[in-house]
């Protein structure tokens, strides 16, 4: 399984032709306490960079973008009742959705873990 990151701080863990999407601990920290997460409907087709979910802190709402295009096949329903999971475990239990990746070549434009770390250090 490989992990890729976007400049908007989403991650996608890829296993075969499916990917699990979440936001990085860096992003979760920047947002502050997450109080609400809006998840997409299962079966929705999203393009690379499309809004796939919404995450809201006390102060503001932010979009979560699809790192690559594909079809939403599962969402993390646990976040509906426990949105704080995003803060507690952004890189694991706080995942947002699972998708069937339409075009694996879109992963090539994303950062690997080392590149993402360098990217965050520069912010």
């Amino acid at each position: 399984m490989s992990v890729y990151f976007t400049e908007d701080h989403e991650w996608i863990k890829v296993d075969g032709d499916t990917g699990i999407v979440g936001i990085s601990p860096y992003a979760a920290k920047q947002l502050g306490d997450v109080v609400y997460v809006e998840l997409p409907e299962i079966g929705r087709e999203v393009g690379k960079g499309d809004e796939a979910a919404v995450v809201e802190s006390v102060k503001a709402a932010s979009e979560v973008y699809a790192p690559v295009g594909g079809e939403v096949i599962e969402v993390n329903e646990k976040l509906e009742d426990a949105p704080e999971t995003v803060n507690a475990s952004a890189d694991d239990e706080g995942w947002f959705l699972k998708m069937k990746i339409a075009d694996a070549s879109e992963l090539e434009s994303l950062m690997d873990e080392a590149a993402y770390k360098t990217y965050c250090d520069g912010l």
Binding site: G32, D33, V35, S57, V58, K59
Partner: peptide, 12 residues
Amino acid sequence: PVQYPMGVMKEH
């Protein structure tokens, strides 16, 4: 200051 390290929720 919009928030301190404690965060908006805990400050509130």
